[in-house]
């Protein structure tokens, strides 16, 4: 379950899922008098950055919880912004 991810995999997966989630919510609330959109998503991941053939990150999870603790865990902060729908908010 704890698998290493390239940064591309992490980013693209979150991008895809965020787009998909927003799309689904927009569809589901299109008949409502009010709808919400997400101008920004911030994600902070704890884990370790490893190097195999490529640079990869293994996010900490329930099964490998904080092996390194505060001293050794890397932190990846990602900020996603919505374009160009953001301008309509």
């Amino acid at each position: 379950m704890t698998s290493p991810f390239t940064f591309f995999s992490i980013i693209s997966e979150f991008l895809y899922e965020a787009n998909e989630g927003l799309d689904q919510a927009t569809q589901a609330s299109k008949d409502q008098p009010v709808a919400f959109t997400i101008p920004q998503i911030e994600i902070e991941l704890n884990g370790k950055v490893i190097r195999d053939e490529e640079l990869e990150m293994v996010p900490s999870n329930a099964f490998e919880s904080n092996y390194y603790g505060d001293k050794g865990e890397s932190k990846l902060k990602l900020t996603f912004k919505l374009v160009p729908g953001e301008q309509n908010v």
Binding site: F36, T37, E42, N46, G47, S60, G69
Partner: peptide, 17 residues
């Protein structure tokens, strides 16, 4: 599981229209 050290997600939501 340490909550303090877990990953977190912050989503800002705004109304439209």
């Amino acid at each position: 599981y340490s909550v303090e050290a877990s990953s977190f997600i912050e989503i800002k939501v705004a109304p439209a229209p």
